[in-house]
Design a protein around this nucleic acid. Structure first.
Lengths: 207, 207
DNA sequence: CAATAGTTTCAGAAACTTTTGAAAGTTTCG
DNA sequence: CGAAACTTTCAAAAGTTTCTGAAACTATTG
């Protein structure tokens, strides 16, 4: 599988030996907790429609006390240089990872955005909102067509169009509702540092 | 692309001619509105991590005044028999499409679940909750590991473990919050017919 | 400015997902 | 029961996404 040097730790044996990590920078394996978390975040993120490696890289950075270089990420996660580079630039584009300048170092270092809510709201804003707006426009267009059909001379056609119009309206209402929720969450998020929590607590008290 | 009989309508020309659909059962093309809606639902659903054809089939059924047979769906959407069969059984498993017995007909007919909220809450319940519960368990496991490390003799290891513990805790809190919201939405949904709407309207008034 | 360090790109490979359609399996009916 | 109608299955094909690694590129340093 890999021809890396002797492991310092694997998820089976006790976490670390004292001497094994005394020089922290020599590590080339994730600890068990890091492995678990990067795996689960990878899955979650994949489920969410992103690449698994985006989640894994983000998670490793999120758990790192210091910014990491592309090379370190490559070692930790057994990825190719290309994959690390491409994935990092995607993460940078999404604004969930930042480049960090490290004194006296030539290479770039990367750190995770640690404000979870900020991160998620950014994704919601760009991705979900676009998708939902597109759907809303499409439903409205469909309703136009159905209105035309409803005026058709053929009563079979007209009748079907009327029923369909009702159903598409339902979809439209639903989509608009969804958009409203998103907007609401997003605007709350902008004002406040940990807004989701407060928002939800308030809601769940009243529900 | 296909060797089907002459089209009755395409999305360019005026919806339907009177005679073209006088025998409604002869239709083998979707009308423009149906085409738009099934396309957009297909995309939305794909974005959501399901197969595009699940969305398309559901949408066609949703817009159909009467239940449709597998064969009709095949014709409308230009799919193979196999694809229709497999996709329908998936939709049945998700409970978003039902088999309908039609008097005097030998074949099976299918109808869409029209309660949008009911549908979505079912999916949330099965899929999202499983995913989030898995994540929660994993984060808890990671915290165990980090606790062990924090007790390590090596102060470098212990210090890192403490920081990581904090961060994983954040993730855990976040995931728990998410689970709470889901539970809340789902329990609301069970009681009430159009609960999301009410729920959200209440929230958006107070927000 | 040449050598070195580091990063990005991209064509092909690998992995994964979805679809096809023919064959096997069921059910219904005379 | 046997034929016809209909449905499901499944191996192979097609399609899609992601990853690799070498080459091209850029920036830094002696």
């Amino acid at each position: 599988m890999s021809t890396e040097p002797t492991p310092l730790a694997s998820s089976d044996d006790p976490p670390y030996t004292i001497e094994a990590v005394s020089k922290d920078k020599e590590r080339d394996k994730l600890g068990p907790a890091e492995a678990i978390v990067s795996d689960v975040i990878g899955r979650l993120i994949e489920f969410w429609g992103f690449k698994r490696n985006m989640g894994r890289i983000w998670a490793v950075l999120y758990l790192s006390p210091d910014p990491l270089s592309a090379e370190e990420l490559r070692k930790f996660l057994h990825l190719s240089t290309g994959a690390v580079s491409m994935t990092l630039s995607e993460l940078l584009r999404w604004g969930v990872v930042r480049k960090v300048w490290v004194q006296g170092e030539r290479k770039d270092f990367f750190a995770a955005e640690v404000q979870l809510w900020r991160m998620i709201s950014r994704v919601f804003n760009e991705r979900e909102k676009a998708e939902i707006s597109f759907a809303i426009d499409a439903f409205e267009e469909a309703i136009q067509h159905l209105d035309a059909q409803a005026r058709s001379g053929d009563s079979v056609v007209a009748k079907r169009a009327e029923l369909q119009r009702e159903r598409v309206k339902q979809l439209l209402e639903f989509a608009k509702l969804g958009k409203k929720v998103l907007d609401m969450l997003l605007s709350t998020a902008k004002v406040d540092a940990e807004p989701l929590a407060r928002f939800l607590l308030r809601v769940s008290r009243s529900g």
